Deep mutational scan, measured.
Amino acid sequence: MATGGRRGAAAAPLLVAVAALLLGAAGHLYPGEVCPGMDIRNNLTRLHELENCSVIEGHLQILLMFKTRPEDFRDLSFPKLIMITDYLLLFRVYGLESLKDLFPNLTVIRGSRLFFNYALVIFEMVHLKELGLYNLMNITRGSVRIEKNNELCYLATIDWSRILDSVEDNYIVLNKDDNEECGDICPGTAKGKTNCPATVINGQFVERCWTHSHCQKVCPTICKSHGCTAEGLCCHSECLGNCSQPDDPTKCVACRNFYLDGRCVETCPPPYYHFQDWRCVNFSFCQDLHHKCKNSRRQGCHQYVIHNNKCIPECPSGYTMNSSNLLCTPCLGPCPKVCHLLEGEKTIDSVTSAQELRGCTVINGSLIINIRGGNNLAAELEANLGLIEEISGYLKIRRSYALVSLSFFRKLRLIRGETLEIGNYSFYALDNQNLRQLWDWSKHNLTITQGKLFFHYNPKLCLSEIHKMEEVSGTKGRQERNDIALKTNGDQASCENELLKFSYIRTSFDKI
């Protein structure tokens, strides 16, 4: 039985969820670079991206490699990797027998973001014989899940209580170790020597080791999670996991709180800001991140802002960003909400898709409305799209047979046209069989910064309504002859009103 693990408890099935942008060198404390989270699957090609990484700022997932063999891993080693800020997950990587050479110096898994409450997941690794993470000293947050690894031993010899604050939620089941077939031998045991430290858990006094050649490092209890030197002297209180010299914040392997210019500090002093819960960055760093993602459509890219001495992905609820200094300031009234469309555009074809934009005031991208039916549609669209004030790209209304009016965009005031449909149009209306009105132009103002209007096959939309939009939106004169079809717009509506004058002759039985 794995020490510190839980057996036999019912657990939810383990679901495996399925960018080499360097964020800056980590400095003297770390020998390499800070790398983003990685999802490495199918083959070993991307694994080489770990070569210079000291910190993975995010998670590391290595999974679904069915053609790899043990010899493929023999020359692979990433000794610079010290810390993973989120979680480490391995799933069905064939041929991998140990992690001792792959990650010989991995010391800390912070667990800032977890995989279903777990910071370390080893699942269905069919050839893994031992973990071998002999320098792993601290899992700051989260638990361990090690399950269905039929060859995995050296679990009962690990004292997880020396690595985690609590072992109650560890789930370590259905491994070879369960069948008591392992016969784990710690260093020196074969020669009758006791080389590794022994600890007591559940009444068992057991030597602690990761492999037959690597003991588990056990520091004096007084050192807590700070770690200790090879001689057993406690590291500085700002260290986490390990250090090369005692009581020196510049000799830590990793930091308990924050890293700044080669030393570990309790908090980031001005003019620095907390970033990702582990390091200090200056304003320029946060500003660069903001600008890199301002026009990016890459998933996970955030326009970072500053709030409460932190550089964070977005302002919290009730705050909006001051564009001059990136500071989050309290909103006066309802907060603006910028919604970034991942692929640059979004099609609204149902109430469900409209709900995804609920509360958005600025759309960074283009909207395509293609709704053919739905219950209580006008009210639903207004509830979900009615706060949109600005669209950076274009607005396209296409084959939306259920629409009679666009009044559900009740606050839309600006279409920038930074991206144009077919390279020309910022407003595009095609084949809307029941569209009769755009907006009530006596109450609604709309500016279209650039781009043209396109109207074709809107049989109940009168040309007068379209011409009014040209005047109000500032697009009059931009359109070419064929942009607004004269014969297919309003051709099934009563669009022309003329005053009919009647004269009559009164007659009676005795007068003409």
Rank of each mutant, 00 (worst) to 15 (best):
D165R: 12
E130Y: 13
G333P: 03
H226G: 12
T199M: 04
L44I: 10
K100E: 15
I56T: 01
C301R: 06
S317K: 03
P269R: 00
T221E: 15
V265Y: 02
Q245A: 08
S98Q: 02
N322K: 06
E71V: 15
E33H: 09
L90C: 11
H214D: 04
N309I: 02
Y154H: 13
I146Y: 02
E314S: 06
T267R: 02
H302G: 13
G188S: 09
S284V: 05
R41Y: 00
W210G: 06
L50N: 01
T250Q: 03
F78A: 04
L326F: 15
L240R: 05
C286H: 03
N170P: 05
C219E: 02
D247R: 11
M321H: 15
H28K: 06
S324T: 07
M83W: 02
L289H: 12
T189H: 14
H226E: 06
E180M: 11
F73S: 04
K176V: 05
M137I: 05
H28D: 10
N257D: 03
I84V: 03
V34M: 14
E180Y: 08
D288W: 05
H290P: 04
N135H: 06
T189F: 12
C328D: 03
T250P: 01
E266W: 15
D177G: 15
C228R: 02
P246S: 13
L327M: 08
N308L: 10
V108K: 02
H48N: 15
R279Q: 15
F275K: 02
T157G: 07
D288I: 06
T211N: 11
L81D: 00
I163F: 12
K67Y: 05
Q276M: 04
Y30S: 09
L174M: 13
I158K: 04
K224T: 09
E207A: 06
D184E: 07
D288Y: 06
L233D: 03
Y118S: 09
P271C: 07
R208P: 14
P31L: 11
E314Y: 04
R74G: 02
N149V: 03
E97G: 11
P36C: 15
L99G: 02
R263I: 12
D165I: 06
I122R: 00
D184N: 08
H212V: 05
R46E: 08
I201L: 13
G203S: 09
R298Q: 02
N195V: 12
W278V: 04
G333F: 04
R141E: 12
P104M: 01
S324P: 15
I139M: 07
Y94G: 05
H307W: 14
V265A: 10
P271S: 10
C293M: 01
L174I: 13
E168I: 07
H212W: 08
W210K: 08
S324L: 08
S161Y: 11
L332R: 07
R162K: 13
F283Q: 04
P197A: 07
V281M: 02
K292S: 06
R110E: 04
Q216R: 07
N52I: 02
N149A: 12
G183K: 10
I146A: 06
G111S: 01
N195Y: 07
F78M: 08
S166L: 08
N105R: 08
S143C: 05
G333K: 02
R74Q: 04
T229W: 06
K80E: 03
F115Q: 04
H226V: 13
S323N: 02
S143N: 11
H59T: 05
T229G: 03
L88V: 07
Y304W: 15
G318S: 09
W160I: 02
T329C: 04
I122Q: 01
D39G: 02
L64Y: 11
T85W: 01
Y134A: 05
L29Q: 03
H236S: 12
S323C: 05
L60D: 01
M65R: 02
Y134T: 02
I158R: 07
L260M: 03
E97P: 05
Y154M: 10
V305L: 05
V55S: 02
Y304G: 03
I109P: 00
N43L: 05
I163W: 01
L44M: 07
P197N: 13
K224N: 05
N138A: 09
L76E: 01
T320M: 08
H28Q: 08
C219K: 03
D248Q: 08
V206Q: 15
N43T: 07
G142S: 02
N325Q: 11
Y154S: 10
A190Q: 15
P269E: 07
D247V: 08
E33V: 07
C311Y: 03
T189I: 13
K292W: 07
N135R: 07
R298W: 12
N295H: 13
R162C: 14
H236M: 03
G95K: 04
A119R: 00
G318V: 03
N135T: 10
D165P: 14
H127R: 03
C328L: 02
E97A: 09
I158W: 04
D39T: 08
S98D: 02
D288N: 14
L332N: 14
Y94K: 06
Y154P: 14
V93H: 12
S324R: 12
C153K: 10
K67M: 08
Y134W: 14
I146D: 01
Q287T: 12
Q276T: 11
N282L: 06
